[in-house]
Amino acid sequence: MTSFIPSARIAVAFAAGLSLAGAAFAFDFPARKPGLWEMSMNLGATASKLPVQVTQQCLDAASDKAMREMGEGMSKDRCSKQDMRNEGGKIIVDTVCKMEGPSNTVATTHSVMSGDFNSTYHVESKSSYSPPMMGRAEGSIVIDAKWVGPCKPGQKPGDMIMSNGMKMNLLDKMGGKK
């Protein structure tokens, strides 16, 4: 997802519990409440023909932190700008990062996040790409997430259920970092 639609890095970050846009920031990003989270991701103008993607993720404090830390490491070397600030209770993130792939595309992203991270959060992210990536000069994503309760029986922290029903454990994908 991150190599196809750069602004979706924010979606992946939240869906996976990673840090915002994979960047290390000066203040701690709010931890999400442990349990089962449902995230609706609308890729908007980036891929208007795609339906809203709904995923569920089981997490605890340790898995949320581990996935944020993984995100911090993902873009340390790729981002020339990684700014995060709190403005009036909203978290504002501005990044400039080289994207993976042969095009050497640079994504400039502005994201605004709000919510209490205990029951809900909302993200709006817009990116511009130079040179355009896969024919797109811009992209956007909106994420609405809500805590739906404790993880389901048989689920373990890091388990994620994708819109298509595919199940995976993000911590296992990270190489067993727990």
Rank of each mutant, 00 (worst) to 15 (best):
Q56N: 05
A145V: 08
T2N: 12
S125V: 06
S125K: 00
A11M: 14
G89F: 12
G88C: 09
G71W: 06
T109G: 01
G35W: 01
A21N: 13
D83H: 03
N118V: 10
P34W: 03
V52T: 14
E87P: 05
L59V: 15
P34H: 04
G176T: 08
A26F: 11
N86S: 12
E69G: 12
V106I: 15
M39T: 15
R32D: 07
M162T: 09
E38S: 09
N86L: 13
L20D: 13
A16T: 13
K177E: 10
G149S: 03
D77P: 03
M133Y: 11
E38L: 10
D83E: 06
G165S: 04
E124G: 02
K178L: 01
F14K: 06
D94T: 11
K65L: 15
P6Q: 05
R68G: 01
E87C: 06
M74R: 11
A61V: 13
F14Q: 12
W147S: 06
R9S: 13
A31C: 02
L171D: 08
V112K: 05
S19K: 02
N118H: 11
M70R: 10
C97V: 09
M84N: 07
N104H: 10
A13V: 04
L59P: 01
M84P: 00
T120G: 08
M166N: 07
Q57S: 14
P153S: 11
K65R: 15
M39W: 02
G73L: 10
F14P: 02
M1I: 02
V96N: 04
D83A: 06
D116V: 02
K49A: 14
N42A: 14
R85N: 07
F29Y: 14
P153W: 02
N164G: 01
L43E: 04
R68D: 05
M99R: 03
M67C: 08
T108G: 03
V106K: 09
K65E: 15
S114G: 07
Q56F: 07
A13Y: 03
G175E: 07
T95W: 12
P157Y: 03
G73N: 04
I91S: 03
T109C: 03
V123T: 13
T95Q: 14
A23F: 01
V54F: 03
I161C: 00
S75N: 15
K81A: 14
N169P: 10
M99T: 12
M168E: 09
A16S: 12
W147Q: 10
S48I: 07
C151M: 04
D77N: 13
I141K: 00
G115D: 13
V148P: 00
P157T: 06
A107R: 01
T95E: 08
E38F: 10
G115S: 06
K98C: 01
K65W: 00
K98N: 09
I10V: 13
E72A: 01
S130G: 12
A23P: 04
D94V: 11
I141S: 09
R68E: 11
L170P: 00
T95G: 01
D172I: 05
K49N: 14
S128R: 08
A145R: 02
